[in-house]
């Protein structure tokens, strides 16, 4: 079954997930089209991160289905490595490889996983580092970079794999307000380039400006969703209203 661009890039269908007794996801469904940017917001522990981690099979799901380009993620026979080549992920704690320079961090996966030509990868890595506005920092180790710089290297590292979807798991939550901006600008440019993005975020202003669609989760279900304009001004559900009143 061939996938084409008229079908959803990522399709989430009635996903259930629990950690022991704790039900984290309780029947979540939505689609993400190509070039779409969606934001998942909601209170802590509402299952946002778990959901996004299920998309690249870092977490397994108990019931339901998640497809990426028509390919079932929940399939036990799935080649996880093939899936992850298509889905990039950026974490809250950057998770750069501390024993490698910024350049090497970006180059590692394409050279060793995709077995691409090293010189070619290096050239692309320089471009990517430039794209995230870190030219000159190629030879720096992660320990020598600020949080915001590390996070941008992490974004470049994911982009080096030429993914079709990018997942951002609270990527600015560990940063101070000054550096949040530089990371958000990077993501914005990425979205403007047409990258399909799924973000878990607490940056409401950013979500409002950038997202095509916003999903509000609470206790493992999607309580409310909509395009930012209606979502922020015309929330229906009392839980959404309460959440927004606390944040905005």
């Amino acid at each position: 079954m061939a996938w084409d661009e008229s079908q959803p890039m990522v399709s989430i269908n009635d996903v259930h997930k629990s950690f022991g007794e704790l039900k984290v996801l309780n029947g979540v469904s939505f689609d993400v089209m190509k070039r779409e940017v969606i934001c998942i917001i909601g209170p802590s522990g509402s299952g946002k991160s778990t959901l996004i981690r299920c998309v690249n099979a870092l977490n397994t799901i108990d019931k339901g289905s998640i497809t990426v380009q028509g390919q079932e993620v929940h399939d036990p026979k799935l080649d996880k490595l093939e899936l992850r080549k298509k889905v990039g992920m950026v974490f809250q704690q950057y998770n750069l490889f501390p024993h490698k320079t910024a350049l090497e961090n970006v180059m590692m996966a394409p050279t060793h996983v995709l077995k691409q030509d090293k010189a070619e990868v290096e050239e692309r890595a320089y471009k990517l580092i430039k794209k995230v506005r870190l030219d000159g920092k190629e030879r720096s180790y992660p320990g020598e970079l600020s949080g915001g710089q590390q996070q941008r290297v992490a974004i470049a590292r994911s982009l080096a794999m030429n993914p079709d979807v990018m997942l951002f798991d609270e990527v600015t939550a560990a940063l101070d307000p000054e550096t949040v901006k530089e990371v958000l600008v990077t993501i914005q440019e990425l979205a403007e380039d047409g990258m399909t993005c799924m973000l878990v975020t607490h940056e409401m202003g950013f979500a409002r400006e950038l997202a095509d669609h916003i999903y509000f989760t609470d206790r493992g279900i999607i309580v409310e969703h909509g395009p930012p304009v209606t979502f922020f001004t015309d929330a229906k559900d009392p839980r959404t209203k309460e959440f927004l009143s606390q944040i905005l």
Partner: peptide, 25 residues
């Protein structure tokens, strides 16, 4: 654990993760 997760999400196999990411550290 973040080191495991990030190398997994970059499609490193477990063997590659151990030899290239974990053991050098």
């Amino acid at each position: 654990s973040g080191q495991w997760e990030s190398s997994e999400s970059l499609a490193f196999s477990r063997r590659q993760t151990i030899w290239m990411i974990i053991l050098p550290q």
